[in-house]
Design a protein around this nucleic acid. Structure first.
Lengths: 304, 304
DNA sequence: CCACGGATGAAACTTACTTTCAGCACGCCC
DNA sequence: GGGCGTGCTGAAAGTAAGTTTCATCCGTGG
């Protein structure tokens, strides 16, 4: 990845807020204060003058400008306009579903369900919006050409990684997933130019995953990172960066929404690869489906 | 024209353009030139600076300001922002995403992404809608009381099962996931009344999963099924049935959307259980987060 | 032909935005 | 633990954008 070069935000009109959320941890404290104000109420921010916003964020105008540049905008007026546009497009979240918010202590199951589903669906949609088809295309191309594909991920991202591995395998691509770092490093050492290594890490700071990906890159493999934070360490060792757009709730444990967002990206890549050779993929799928048929029970009707 | 008495335009956010069109004949020639530019391409006008717009309309900045006042805006920046907002709202909703449909053969990546995300998001939302909070409540209750929880799933559902296991474990509940049927059956044989067994199967016809769940029930455990088909075999051996609502596309291979729907349900149960004992869950989460801290790289700042 | 009033743009002025720069705090390396 | 570099920050200077003022122009009606 090309170092600092402000991460482009103008794929299209959509997703500036999401984009900013992703960049949040990579911003300086003062800029983060500005960012938080903007995220909290984009429409309001658009109405404010730069001086006003600076005051509200307890910082100087200079920092606000720096913030604008950090998120890929040319200046404050540009940011204002984009914010106004976003805010207008944004449909008010139905009633009291706190976007990205925590679940209130007294919540009953119905509320919990509504909140989770809302956030999950949002993560999926926003991820898709900001996903760069050009980058996906390149990744799909690389996977299609690859002699071998390796997928890495730890913890929750490990499930996603292994899911992808299984999918690729199912359409006849040689793919591996190693849950264990040592095995992974060993296998990685055998990668070469033309192979593809994919590292999945929500935070982008998982040491093991980054290390493995780095190793892969040294061996000449094409490296891909899938993370929520476009400026996290993992992006430094990746040729292609794909980002999710999940604003996690306080139950950071699960990184719940992010997992779904990651899976959505995975699905897109999978379908993209499969589409490159529809006939072959379809056939492979039929064969594999046939393989498990014996393990299926008779129908799902009345009483089985 | 009734003099200056600027017609108020801020009834609401909508209709500025229409409003201006209506006022057109009552504007002075120079102002009309400005108005026409604005009406022709609001988004473009929003991007221009006042000097720019004035030049384009072959007039002076002063006239542009007069125009702003004439249409009821306070000044040029205000107009700009309103225009940006209007223009954004005017954008066509993302065309023809075939609901539940297959991906057309000639589709490019952008289309694929849009289709998948749309279906994924829909699956999540619709699953949440039809999920019965009462049933969830009972399942949560059972898990909370259980001495031990076992989760089963094969293939893609296996990832979901193991994800749930890991989550429960993380908040201090004793939970197991056995990828292998034999091990699963062995473990299941040791379940007893009060324990909980959860079987996950998209089709509801996965023989292994059904068998294990049946075994669990015989042992007196409370059984839960998570499936997309409320009348499939797995529901016959379950005390509580939770359903997802994914209309799969032709790429049945992945059961892509269903996976996300399953995860959403899992998340709901997880949060439900965690909410039963917030303090304990939070503490457990903090401890486990702390445990992996050493495996995190320093933040995602500028250049790492 | 003059008086009048509205329309208009040049220029003065104000405010908003942007850049520069020096101070400061923090982490790093001896 | 002291010096050194690096990056964050806001004050202030500088520039551009927006707004007001005002003289001029032009057409109209007396």
């Amino acid at each position: 990845m090309v170092k600092t070069a402000k991460v482009s935000a103008n794929r299209d009109a959509g997703g500036l807020i999401v984009h900013i959320s992703g960049l949040l941890p990579s911003l300086s404290p003062a800029e983060q204060r500005v960012a938080r104000l903007v995220i909290a109420d984009p429409a309001d921010a658009a109405r404010r003058t730069i001086t006003d916003l600076a005051t509200a964020a307890e910082t100087s105008e200079a920092t606000v400008i720096r913030f604008c540049r950090s998120v890929g905008m040319q200046g404050y007026p540009q940011l204002r306009i984009r914010l106004a546009a976003e805010a207008a497009r944004r449909v008010e979240p139905p009633d009291a579903r706190v976007v990205g918010g925590d679940i209130p202590p007294g919540a009953d199951l119905a509320q919990i369900i509504a909140t989770i589903a809302f956030n999950d669906a949002r993560a999926v949609e926003e991820t898709a919006e900001q996903l760069d088809p050009a980058v996906c295309e390149r990744v799909v191309e690389a996977i299609t050409q690859a002699g071998r594909v390796e997928v890495y991920g730890a913890g929750a991202s490990g499930f996603v990684a292994s899911d992808f591995q299984q999918k690729l395998h199912r359409i006849g691509r040689t793919a591996f997933y190693w849950p264990d770092v040592h095995t992974a490093l060993t296998s990685t050492a055998l990668l070469s130019r033309g192979d593809v290594a994919i590292g999945i890490s929500h935070t982008g700071t998982t040491a093991d995953t980054v290390e493995v990906l780095e190793q892969a890159r040294l061996r000449g493999a094409t490296t891909v990172a899938l993370t929520n934070f476009p400026r996290s360490p993992i992006t430094e060792v990746a040729d292609h960066v794909l980002t999710t757009a999940a604003r996690e709730t306080t139950y950071r444990s699960g990184a719940m929404a992010s997992r779904l967002a990651q899976l959505t990206v995975i699905d897109c890549l999978f379908v993209g690869v499969a589409a490159r050779n529809r006939a072959r993929a379809r056939k492979a799928i039929e064969i594999t489906a046939e393989a498990v048929r014996g393990h299926r029970l008779p129908g799902g009707r009345r009483r089985g």
